Simulated assay, not measured.
Amino acid sequence: MLDTAIRMFSERGWSVGVREIAAEAGVSFETVYAKFGSKTRLFLTAFDVAVVGDDQPVPLVDRSGFTAMSAGDRRERAAAGAALAAEIYGRTTGLYRALREGASSDTELAAKLAEAYRRQRSDVRTAGEAVAGRTLTDDEAEGLWAVISTEVYDLLVNNAGWSQSRYRDWLADTTLRLLGPA
């Protein structure tokens, strides 16, 4: 059910119905509601699973892709961060679009969007400091957060037609430029 929900919310946005998701997943509408209770809860569960790539209760900052930003030289750390961002946004950009759509009319989704941006902002600062090997200024952290955003990924990959590898290379180089000399 969750894989189907992730795919359908990503492709069709917040407007996709639970009945459509249930039919596509080969389960009854009642089964979905018994497990999740509402469309909002189904979406929020799907979103959380998509961000980290599985349903294990391990925070992103404790996962190997994140901790890889603390190993190697600055270029290797920046490349690890860019690879992680590309991987996550490849799974979640459509869900972020759906979340922004739904947040305009659902207070629980609006709260999730605010929390997702807060967490993303914090994670980007932590990642940037791992890559830089030092504490970032607020301007550096905020600028990095803006560049390493789902919106920029969406513009470059889904709208401008960049490949994942072009995006990863650009993001690693841009990160290094934003952080300045070692």
Rank of each mutant, 00 (worst) to 15 (best):
S10P: 10
I6M: 10
L42T: 03
D73Q: 09
W14M: 01
S122D: 13
G37D: 10
I21F: 00
S122E: 14
L42S: 00
I148P: 03
A116R: 10
T175L: 09
M69S: 01
R77G: 01
A182C: 08
G13I: 00
I148V: 15
D123E: 12
L155S: 14
T93K: 05
L2H: 12
T175A: 09
G17N: 07
A34K: 15
L155G: 13
D169K: 09
R121A: 13
L155A: 15
P181L: 14
W162T: 07
T93S: 14
T93C: 08
S104N: 05
L2Y: 12
I21Q: 01
D106T: 03
G161N: 12
A114I: 06
E140A: 00
Y33C: 04
I88A: 06
S15K: 09
A130N: 08
E87W: 09
A110M: 02
A85P: 02
I21C: 02
R100K: 14
L60M: 09
L144N: 03
R12C: 09
A160K: 14
L156N: 10
S70G: 15
A83Y: 00
L156K: 14
L155D: 12
S122A: 14
A23K: 13
V124E: 01
N159Q: 15
A68E: 10
I88L: 09
E11F: 07
A83I: 00
V27T: 05
S105W: 04
V152E: 13
S28H: 07
A146W: 11
E30M: 13
V61Q: 12
P57N: 03
K35G: 02
D48G: 13
M1E: 06
D62I: 02
G72R: 08
A22K: 02
G53Q: 07
A141C: 03
Y153P: 07
T93M: 06
A79P: 00
T93H: 13
S38R: 07
E151G: 12
T126A: 11
L60R: 12
W162A: 11
R97H: 07
G161W: 11
T150P: 10
Y117E: 15
A114F: 04
T31M: 05
E24I: 00
A34L: 08
V51K: 06
A103W: 06
T107W: 08
N158E: 15
L171S: 01
D173H: 09
T107S: 14
S15R: 11
E142C: 00
E20N: 04
E108K: 12
G143R: 05
T135C: 02
K112M: 15
I88G: 03
T107C: 06
G128Q: 01
D123W: 07
A114M: 07
N159I: 15
R119V: 13
R41T: 06
I6E: 10
V18T: 13
L42V: 04
D173I: 03
T126Y: 02
S149L: 07
L136N: 01
A79K: 10
G53W: 05
D48A: 15
R19F: 05
R63D: 05
E30L: 11
E142A: 08
P57D: 11
E151W: 12
G26I: 00
F47K: 07
N159V: 15
Y89E: 10
G81F: 03
F36Q: 08
R100C: 07
A172Y: 04
R118G: 13
T175P: 05
A46C: 04
F66R: 01
A146N: 08
G81V: 00
